[in-house]
Design a protein around this nucleic acid. Structure first.
Length: 274
DNA sequence: ACTCGCCTGTCG
DNA sequence: CGACAGGCGAGT
């Protein structure tokens, strides 16, 4: 489940080898991702362009290539990898861009919840999925964003998942940040005192930075890998996510799981209070 | 402000 | 074989 740290790890592992490369050909699988993969659009916007920059916006990656931009989202199971052109493509490779150094950028996504869209560089500014993103909790102070929802009745775990509030947080890091902040996931946002908002903001930044340093979270399913196909090792540092029934590393109490808005929330009833 | 459907692989 | 994983957009 690529969230902000995993996308940042991909960006860092990809950027140095992608920037300066010219796109020579583009092929697609024919299957739709979140949006249809339009081979005509890909060829129109990518062929002959040179990648100048690779940027992250929340969970999105934006490659700038001269007057074009390629927007990617890894969805649930997406990978962006660089491989040698001509080597066998893994199953579920939906986009392959061959580059001028004999490498090939591949977008691989078994579950096809991801996104790969080419466009004019000037269109990025108004592209709706990017335009609605909240601020970046790794790069910016997210206290103002968390304060902005102080009237909301929505459970704080769900607030953290709202990409228009803070961009890039998914279920793993929402749960982990709440554990570090000592706040119960179901706490209505408006019930959280300002001191706890400050604590949550710093816990969020801290857990995201720790996860980036560890190369991201690769769960037992092996879903996530960086651009070289390497797993991250933050999974060993998860305090609550996926640990229902196991003892809390801080107090020993059994971690509990419950459904919150259709997806699992995890917490320690001793360490986290409403 | 909710729920549902999309999609595939894995696990019990 | 059903449950589950879950980001996100569409529908209610």
């Amino acid at each position: 489940m690529p969230e902000l740290p995993e996308v940042e790890v991909v960006r860092r592992s990809l950027a140095a080898r992608l920037v300066g490369r010219r796109v020579e050909s583009a092929e697609v699988s024919g299957l739709a991702l979140r949006c249809p993969l339009d081979v005509t659009a890909w060829r129109r916007w990518s062929l002959g362009r040179t990648v100048r920059d690779l940027d992250r916006r929340g969970k999105y990656l934006v490659a700038l290539a001269d007057d074009a931009a390629f927007v990617f989202h890894l969805g649930m199971s997406g990978r962006l990898v660089l491989a040698r052109s001509g080597s066998a493509r893994p199953v579920h490779t939906h986009l392959a861009l061959t580059l001028d150094d004999g490498s090939e950028l591949r977008f691989i996504d078994p579950r096809r919840f991801g996104l790969a869209v080419p466009m004019a560089a000037e269109s990025v500014r108004t592209y709706q999925p990017l335009a609605t993103l909240g601020l970046d909790p790794l790069l910016e102070d997210c206290v103002p964003a968390l304060r902005s929802v102080r009237q909301s009745r929505v459970a704080i775990r769900n607030v953290l998942l709202d990409q228009s509030v803070v961009a890039g947080v998914g279920n793993i890091y929402a749960n982990e940040a709440l554990f570090r902040a000592g706040t119960h996931p179901a706490t209505p946002a408006r019930k959280i005192a300002d001191r706890r908002i400050l604590r949550l903001a710093s816990a969020l930044k801290e857990v995201l930075a720790d996860a980036v340093s560890a190369g991201g979270t690769t769960l037992a399913d092996g879903g996530f890998a960086n651009a070289d196909g390497e797993a991250g090792y933050f999974a060993v540092n998860l305090a609550v996510y996926g640990r229902a029934g196991l003892p809390c590393a801080r107090c020993g109490r059994e971690i509990r799981r419950f459904a919150l808005g259709g997806r699992s929330a995890y917490f320690c009833a001793t360490c986290q209070r409403r």
